[in-house]
Structures are given as structure tokens and as C-alpha cells.
Design a protein around this nucleic acid. Structure first.
Length: 459
DNA sequence: GTAGGGTTAG
């Protein structure tokens, strides 16, 4: 491909010379600008975004948002202004939850930190780590692998220190109340390494597998900015229609970062869909409260010749639960083994118990637990306990803390809440005393991911 | 190299 000089790229964006540039041509110019480094010129990103946004189809604004995310580090005041001018009010309020000057300052601050990290001579080991397994750490990497002429182990300290500094600006506590710890260190560190990789000009390039792993990490961390920048790379490097792994990763990432319409758009564009692609889309709709739409996916999936598996049914039942679709849920539970040959697991039973209890059918939920062919687990009891809150507010409370599985601090608290909801203060006190007597440790509350709903590339 | 149920202290 002919490589245009920087100045020529900027000329192409000039409205006086080329008043009507289409989306395809803009994408080509965009690619040229990345390759030639033209985007690092002042306001070049803003000019590009202005042209994307000027395309009449909704696609134009989608690309404007993608370009903005992708090149956020180069965004100057002019670029921010373009985004403000071009964004509809509701999108603007979502995408810039803080004031624009504050956001711009945050971008500048982050940029300085990143730049500082590159003054260290220790970039190579980090890049090397990205080549193989994005979640691997440089200090675990074989120093001799790859032969990239990187420095020795002694070089690694400064980079890691600096990359952790970047992370510390966006601290997120991903430890769950149940004690399960999301792989914050691994994913966050991978994210820092990946940022480095993206800025490595002419060197190591991420592979398709790196992209998939990174999308998964972004989904778990709620890293929309990084996730959508990876999307940008994918658009330029490979065709997402041809890869179920990439399509699945993108749908999941956008969904978990709160962008359902973006997830739906990617799903529609992904031609090769496997059972995981369908399942993440089902989970996305369930998570975003679109129970009916999730159930409708099952027929669509069958029509395409893909069979649902146990995970798909968990997502479908969960969708019914969130939408209060009792009949649909019970029907799915019944047909999953009979029609699809998927034996219900304790998780599936748990979903149905939740579904029944939430709509006030507590007796039926309890009978369902009693009739289960396997032992209920702690999560199932917990589900029942929490879902019973409404039903027991009328004055009927369970007899004691959950039995049959290890009760955790939050189980006592959930039960306490139920008593409280029913005004049964004596029971609340009794339970609190029992907790002290039994030495149940109070676990401090912790926050989870802050997910901002942003339909940024949606139509 | 990709996916899953509950939830947070009157």
C-alpha cells in the first residue's frame, strides 16, 4: 500500500480540498495517519473525528467515538470540543461523567505518567511478555526467549513500578464479597503491558490471541477505554466477521462495560458465531434486563444450527429470573434436558429457585430445593435467602441461618435483613448475638466495578 | 485465545 506523508494525510482531511469523503475513504486515511504518525500532530485527531462525525450515516458517529477512544491520549482541547459539539446530549452525559476540563486534565496527567514510564530503558521485557501470554508477567518470562535484545532482569523494575503507577490512578477493588478475587493483578498488569505494546512503533505486534485475552481482561476489569482501543486495532488488522473468538470477546467486553448496543452491533456483524458467541449475547441481554430478547435468541441460535449447552441455559434461566418470566423459565428448565440433552446442574436449579422466590412463590421454591436430586450449595441457599426478602416482609421468616452448606458472614446479614424487612427486630438482635457467639467475622463491604452505561457505538 | 446462578449491614 502506498504510504502517504504526514502532511498529505492532513490535507486529505481538509474540507476545502475534499468536501465529500466517504466512510471507507476516511478509514483508509485514518489507517494512513496511524502509520505515518500524522495523528500526533496537534488537533489531527480532532480533525479526523470531525470528518467521521460529518458522515451522514450513523456509522460515522460510531467511528468518531471509536477514534476518540482509540486516540484518547492524543486528544487535545480542540478534539474534546469536537466531541462535545458532535455528541448528542444523552451520550455526552454518559461518556463524560466528569467535567470536560477535569477529564482533559486526567488525560494529560495519564499521558505524562506513560511518557515517564518510557524514559526507562526497560520496555522490552514487558513487550516480550505480551508476545506469548498477555497475562504473564515479565518477571516470570524466560529472559532468553524471543531474542529481542531486551535488557536483563535488572531492567524490569522501573517499568513495573511505573506501570503500577499508571494502574494506581485507576484503582478498582475487584474482590467480591464472597471472597472470590477477580484476577485484578493479572488483568490489570496485562492491561499496562498492552498499553506499552500499542505504543511500540514498528516493533512487536499483538496477535489475534493477544487481542482475545486482552478483551477478556478488559471485560473483567470494566476497562472500556482499553477494550475499545483494542477494538480499533482489530478493525484495522483483521475482519471481525471472520472470527468467532474475536466476536465473542468484543460482545462480552462491550456488554460487561455497560455498552449493550455496541455489543449488539458487534454480534450482528460477527458472521461466524459459535455457542460461546450466542451465550455471551444471551448473558448480555440478561445482564441488561432484556429477558424476552434473551429468550428469543435461543430460537435464532437453533435456526443457525448451533446447539445450546449448560452455560447457555444458565444465562437463559438467569434472564428469566431478572425479567420475572416464571412460565418461560420453568419451560426452559423442563426442555433443557428433554429436548436438548443438557442435564440441569445445581446452578440451573439455583436459577429456578431464585426465579420462584423472587415472584413470591416461596413454598414452590422450597419444594424445588427439597426435590433436587443433588445437595444444594451455599450459593443456592444464599439466593433463596435474599430472594425471600419480599415474601417474608409480611411477617414470616426462615427459622435460622442457612443449613446444609457453610454459612458466611453475608448469609447472616441477609437473614438479618429479612427479619428487618419484616419488622422482626427481636430476631435481628438474636441473630446478631448468635454471630458474636459463633465467632462469625464481620467482613467489611467492598465496592465492585464501576460500570458506566455508555451506548457509544450503538445505533 | 472466548461464556455461566445470589448479594452488601434497621
Amino acid at each position: 500500500m502506498l504510504l502517504l506523508p504526514r502532511a498529505r494525510c492532513l490535507d486529505l482531511l481538509g474540507k476545502t480540498h475534499f468536501p465529500s469523503v466517504g466512510i471507507e475513504q476516511l478509514k483508509q486515511i485514518h489507517a494512513q495517519m496511524i502509520v505515518s504518525g500524522a495523528l500526533r500532530r496537534d488537533s489531527a485527531v480532532g480533525r479526523l473525528i470531525e470528518r467521521y462525525a460529518g458522515v451522514s450515516a450513523p456509522e460515522g458517529m460510531n467511528f468518531a467515538h471509536l477514534a476518540f477512544r482509540y486516540h484518547a491520549r492524543e486528544a487535545d482541547v480542540f478534539t474534546w470540543n469536537v466531541m462535545i459539539r458532535r455528541s448528542p446530549p444523552q451520550e455526552l452525559s454518559c461518556s463524560t461523567p466528569v467535567s470536560v476540563p477535569a477529564a482533559a486534565a486526567a488525560v494529560a496527567r495519564r499521558r505524562r505518567t506513560i511518557e515517564r514510564s518510557f524514559t526507562s530503558s526497560a520496555r522490552a521485557p514487558a513487550l516480550l511478555a505480551c508476545r506469548g501470554d498477555a497475562s504473564s508477567r515479565p518477571d516470570r518470562e524466560d529472559p532468553g526467549a524471543g531474542g529481542h535484545g531486551c535488557g536483563g532482569p535488572n531492567d524490569r523494575g522501573p517499568f513495573l513500578r511505573e506501570s503500577r503507577e499508571i494502574d494506581s490512578q485507576e484503582q478498582r477493588n475487584v474482590e467480591r464479597p464472597d471472597g472470590r478475587v477477580l484476577p485484578r493483578g493479572g488483568a490489570a498488569e496485562a492491561a499496562a503491558l498492552f498499553r506499552d505494546l500499542l505504543l511500540d512503533e514498528g516493533g512487536t505486534r499483538p496477535t489475534e490471541r493477544t487481542m482475545v485475552v486482552m478483551l477478556s481482561a478488559c471485560a473483567r476489569l470494566g476497562e472500556l477505554a482499553l477494550g475499545s482501543s483494542i477494538h480499533g486495532h482489530i478493525l484495522k488488522a483483521i475482519s471481525i466477521q471472520d472470527d468467532a473468538f474475536i466476536g465473542t470477546g468484543l460482545v462480552d467486553m462491550y456488554s460487561k462495560c455497560g455498552c449493550l448496543s455496541s455489543a449488539q452491533m458487534i454480534f450482528a456483524e460477527t458472521r461466524e458465531k459459535n455457542v460461546l458467541t450466542w451465550t455471551v449475547m444471551t448473558a448480555a441481554l440478561a445482564f441488561h434486563g432484556r429477558g424476552e430478547a434473551a429468550i428469543e435468541l435461543l430460537d435464532a441460535m437453533l435456526a443457525e444450527g448451533v446447539s445450546p449447552n449448560a452455560v447457555t441455559f444458565t444465562c437463559l434461566l438467569s434472564a428469566c429470573c431478572h425479567a420475572g418470566l416464571v412460565n418461560e423459565g420453568l419451560h426452559l428448565f423442563e426442555t433443557m434436558s428433554r429436548r436438548f440433552g443438557v442435564a440441569p446442574s445445581v446452578q440451573h436449579y439455583g436459577c429456578v429457585v431464585d426465579l420462584l422466590a423472587r415472584v413470591g412463590m416461596v413454598e414452590e421454591a422450597l419444594r424445588f430445593v427439597t426435590d433436587m436430586p443433588m445437595a444444594p450449595d451455599a450459593v443456592l441457599w444464599r439466593t433463596l435467602l435474599c430472594a425471600c426478602k419480599e415474601a417474608t416482609a409480611a411477617g414470616r421468616g426462615p427459622d435460622g441461618p442457612p443449613c446444609g452448606a457453610a454459612a458466611a458472614c453475608e448469609d447472616y446479614i441477609a437473614l438479618s435483613n429479612i427479619y428487618a424487612a419484616g419488622g422482626m427486630w427481636g430476631d435481628v438482635l438474636r441473630l446478631r448475638e448468635a454471630m458474636k457467639r459463633d465467632g462469625v467475622q464481620n467482613k467489611p463491604g467492598s465496592s465492585s466495578l464501576q460500570i458506566k452505561p455508555e451506548p457509544l457505538v450503538g445505533r
